[in-house]
């Protein structure tokens, strides 16, 4: 009778992979894109990124400690939010806007809902969209690589019929655009690494990029232009795959991803904004609870 039956609630298998580690790996995988941004757009880009990350971290710290009166656990999610927001901003923007965006992203995007895990919308995109509709001119003034002159993004060239950059330029990233969205090579490196590690689901980037590619084939737009310009790659790998704001069911993920690809292309082709990735992801974020309801698997043996 010396044996004791130990009972404890599940899960019974522990994993050394904690939220903090996953978040740091995401930061690591965003490093190539951040470096590419700084390489192409110079010191100003570095200041924007640093401001955005610092503002996000400090806001989160102050809110949890003084507004909620709770112990602060550094899970690294504020760093990811700040970095992602910074990467979606125009490189020449004043750091003041990065600061405003980061505060909005952390407070309105995440903390009013109770913090990480409860937010319905991707916080970084809440911050970016807030900036875009509040300061439309500042948010659409683009800087040419290695140059302080302003330029047009490939997507606005596509809309106005200007000369398009070669797909090689788009691939390496020396074109106008948001700080971290221009280099497809750097983004793909980070994104594929996350898929390889199993931290993000391949279904979501595949669905987003695949549906956008099919849509542009149907409309007769060059597929490389569609995929390699604008924020599509950044959004597909790093924003649509956010654990909190994407569906948990595989079928739901497919629908979610295809929805993002299609809405992005509809906004790009027919809408008033030249780029629609952030709106598309926010709209599909809102649909996540309904998509999960729709695709929830039946329990075995359940009778309907």
């Amino acid at each position: 009778m010396g044996r004791i039956l130990l009972q404890s609630p599940g899960p019974h298998l522990g994993s050394p992979e904690q939220t903090r580690q996953i978040m740091w790996l995401v930061v690591l995988s965003l490093l190539p894109a951040s470096l590419a941004g700084v390489y192409f757009f110079g010191f100003g880009a570095l200041v924007v990124l640093a401001t955005s990350v610092a503002a996000a971290v400090v806001t989160e710290y102050l809110w949890i400690k003084y507004v909620r009166g709770k112990e602060v656990r550094a899970d690294g999610s504020a760093v990811v939010t700040g970095l992602l927001l910074g990467l979606t901003l125009p490189p020449g923007i004043s750091p003041l806007y990065a600061f405003i965006g980061a505060v909005v992203a952390i407070i309105l995007g995440k903390q009013v809902y109770g913090g990480l895990g409860s937010n319905p919308f991707n916080p970084a995109l809440v911050g970016r969209t807030f900036l875009l509709i509040s300061f439309p001119v500042v948010m659409t003034t683009w800087q040419a690589p290695w140059d302080a002159t302003t330029t047009a993004t490939p997507l606005s060239l596509l809309a106005t019929g200007g000369p398009l950059p070669s797909w090689g330029q788009l691939f390496w990233g020396n074109v106008g655009g948001s700080l971290g969205e221009t280099s497809v090579l750097a983004l793909a490196l980070g994104g594929l690494y996350l898929i390889y590690k199993g931290y993000i689901d391949w279904r979501i980037p595949t669905g987003v990029l695949g549906s956008a590619a099919l849509f542009s084939l149907a409309l007769g737009i060059p597929v490389t232009t569609t995929l390699f310009s604008g924020g599509l790659v950044l959004g597909a790998f790093f924003m649509a795959t956010d654990y909190v704001t994407s569906p948990v069911t595989p079928a739901g993920r497919w629908l979610f991803a295809i929805g993002i690809g299609l809405i992005t292309m509809v906004i790009r082709q027919f809408g008033g904004y030249p780029e629609g990735v952030s709106f598309a992801i926010l709209l599909m974020n809102a649909a996540v609870p309904l998509l999960e309801k729709l695709t929830w698997p039946k329990a075995m043996g359940a009778v309907q």
């Binding site: 309105l108 995007g109 009013v112 319905p120 919308f121 809440v126 969209t129 807030f130 509709i133 809405i263 509809v266 906004i267 027919f270 809408g271 008033g272 904004y273 629609g276 952030s278 709106f279 598309a280 926010l282 709209l283 974020n285 809102a286």
Partner: peptide, 17 residues
């Protein structure tokens, strides 16, 4: 109300469609 506001912000993406 905050959620409704964010939802309305996302719907701004359809502007000009």
């Amino acid at each position: 109300l905050i959620t409704a506001g964010l939802l309305s912000m996302a719907f701004l993406g359809f502007t000009g469609l």
